[in-house]
Nucleic acid binder design. Structure first.
Length: 89
DNA sequence: TATGAGCGA
């Protein structure tokens, strides 16, 4: 279960994401996307959980939750970019 | 340095 997490605050780390999602199950990976131009957070990230049932629980439990002043949004992620590098969808 | 609609290098 790969999930897309958006509306994060700019200083929320992937470790913060991992800790939050681990309340609902085992987290395989957690990533916060950084702006390649500025090196700063883009305010969204991805979390992958081993069990899809835990993923559903995490979405229900964390979607809309207020984290660091922002109501973060959690949903199922799309497929990763098929090709490497710079193409804006 | 940069910032807020969105899907990763």
């Amino acid at each position: 279960m790969n999930m897309y997490v958006s509306n994060l605050s700019f200083h929320t780390s992937e470790d913060d994401l991992r800790k939050m999602f681990e309340q609902f199950g085992a987290v395989s990976s957690a990533k916060v996307i950084m702006d390649r131009e500025t090196g700063r957070s883009r305010g969204f990230g991805f979390v992958e959980m081993g069990a899809d049932s835990d993923g559903e629980a995490a979405i229900k439990g964390l979607n809309g939750k207020d984290i660091d002043g922002r109501a973060m949004s959690v949903s199922v992620a799309r497929e990763k970019a098929p090709r490497p590098t710079n193409k804006r969808w």
